[in-house]
Design a protein around this nucleic acid. Structure first.
Lengths: 334, 334
DNA sequence: ACGGATGTTTTGAACGTTAAAAACATCCGC
DNA sequence: GCGGATGTTTTTAACGTTCAAAACATCCGT
């Protein structure tokens, strides 16, 4: 593989002139630039990333910890990973994947990757309540950006991009209200989940705004499973005041709701409107199709990379993005 | 962050002596080594990967193309990705993720990553019939190893690690035979799938060895879905000579079989023994639990890295690994 | 014709490691 | 005491870019 030196010899210029042809072509006389570019092409020159990184101290790699639940697929993370890679590449960078223990036990790994100049910074995701990684990185001035806020912190310890769960739930309530529902339930998670409480707040606020009841219409599920979604829905149906709409905090819980409605001889859509969150592939193939809130993965990834690389001066360090409500049969009126 | 130079000054030795302390400590007098190590620790020295890579021409990064189906989770690939990262780290390397168009359209991306010294080589996966990547990389002497063989090629174009699907199907047949089944069916894929034909061959060969019938007992499914598995099972049940055992080529098809059996008032296990492949999380939580063939992900990843890095002279360039049959209720006799 | 300004190209050094050769120190047999 | 062998440490250069300064060429006003 040719080096700058070889290209320079071929074009009968200095190494610096070849470097200028690549990085500052305006410095060169047009005929010199043409000759150098021809040599670059003829010799199939490719810049050596190591040499450049050594001189500039920028490696153009972004560290991302491989999702820590190998026993469980995580659709949102799969889509996110692909979008993140593509966004990084668009900016001339790549993603370096690594494993690390959970919480602070993993911080030495992050520290080491940065100290050895293996990465310039990190993208964090799967943020947990009181997640310690953010503060740890901020304290050490190691660049990072987070997909998701650190829940239940008074101030965020660093830049983030997130999807507005509350707004999403509100959109779902609004939509169900527009299809005629007047008693809309919410299937959520335990109170310890900040994300769950955020989405619940969106449901509650919009119901209140629309004058809809909220009492006795929230069921928190211990786990994010179809069975729990089914159980919670059964509980609502058997409550004596069954809902005519259900906003589920996730597609998984929503699928459980669909199953339970089917078991009770009720029709999703016609009898009870159902919505989920994340717009997983099953949302479209289940019958009826599940109305769901879709997270804008490509936009999320693009914003994360823009914040981390500081390539756009207009980028604020916090970005809350709106999900998109994808309307399907599960919320269509009768 | 301290450099070798700063550590050397602190320890009152040359840069080379510090480098020797790290890489060839046997060259140093014990008291010199101790003094240098103390300086390394005091100054929290971390080697700069770029500098080392520039001098040695080895970047210690392995390129892996992010799975190309963002609309569909792929459990096996999720587990694989985690195992691959961990195995790479164990060898002092990391995974660089990238995106690329499918088939030969993606080859310029591979070429560029290698030419620019962003990676030392590649791990390929999701191999397809007549997959062109392998031959392309081999022709250009770009190091790689493949998780999965290139089906329907007379010779493999490069090193690979794979799971022996045929042996897996044979194990499943053997197991069902041992639980008393004598008419074992196979749910497979279209004939164009090399992997499917391989697994089918294992089923057929073992049935023949055991003197079991094979005629009219194979149903090929157009797609890997629960519905297709259910449809295929219905076809077998309605055939006039229903099977008492079913080996499914994947867990998804097996779940379809379980559903169809339930719909027909038949009990998986007691009435019809069912097995799947891949041991997905649902295999254990479905009722009854699904007997399934589990791929040894950590071993696969470890072998891939060993072949690619050439770190063990005894490693052959082709490794066929056995899956593990995880026995659950779906194959338990009545 | 000359000096200052501007355009274009070259020169020298730096980044931080590793590899190889050289230098220095020590030991031992003759 | 000396020369050869071995142990230990230092010296020198290399890897391939980028950065900054210097040199050279050209232009224009006086």
């Amino acid at each position: 593989m040719a080096t700058l030196k070889q290209v320079a010899a071929h074009a009968e210029v200095s190494v610096q002139t070849v470097s200028n042809a690549l990085n500052a072509p305006h410095r060169l006389r047009p005929d010199t630039l043409e000759r150098v570019n021809r040599s670059i092409e003829l010799l199939n020159y490719r810049p050596n990333r190591n040499a450049r990184s050594l001189r500039t101290s920028a490696v153009e790699l972004i560290g991302y910890c491989v999702p820590s639940w190998p026993n469980q697929t995580h659709l949102v993370m799969d889509q996110f990973l692909h979008a993140l890679c593509a966004a990084a590449e668009t900016s001339g960078r790549h993603i370096l994947l690594f494993t690390a223990p959970a919480a602070v036990d993993g911080m030495p790994t992050y520290d080491d990757l940065h100290a050895r100049r293996l990465v310039d910074g990190f993208v964090l995701s799967q943020t947990e309540t009181h997640d310690p990684r953010h503060g740890w990185l901020k304290d050490r001035q190691i660049p990072f950006v987070s997909f998701g806020r650190v829940w239940k912190e008074t101030t965020q310890p660093g830049p983030w991009v997130d999807v507005d769960g509350a707004a999403g739930s509100a959109m779902a309530v609004q939509h169900l209200h527009e299809t005629g529902r007047r008693r809309i339930a919410f299937l959520g998670w335990p109170q310890s989940s900040g994300l769950g409480e955020d989405r619940l707040a969106g449901w509650r606020d919009r119901c209140t705004e629309l004058g809809l009841p909220t009492g006795g219409l929230v069921v928190r599920c211990a786990e994010d499973t179809i069975d729990e979604g089914a159980r919670a829905t059964a509980q609502l149906i058997d409550s004596g005041q069954p809902p005519d709409g259900i906003v589920a905090l996730s597609d998984i819980l929503a699928l459980g709701a669909l199953r339970q409605l089917g078991d009770r001889g009720l029709t999703a859509g016609a009898d009870v409107g159902v919505t989920g969150f994340d717009d997983s592939p099953r949302a479209s193939v289940v019958s009826p199709g599940l109305t769901s809130l879709r997270q804008p993965m490509e936009q999320i990834a693009t914003e994360l990379i823009a914040i981390l690389t500081g390539t756009r001066n207009d980028v604020p360090s916090e970005r809350l993005l709106l999900p998109e409500l994808v309307i399907r049969g599960s919320s269509a009126p009768g």
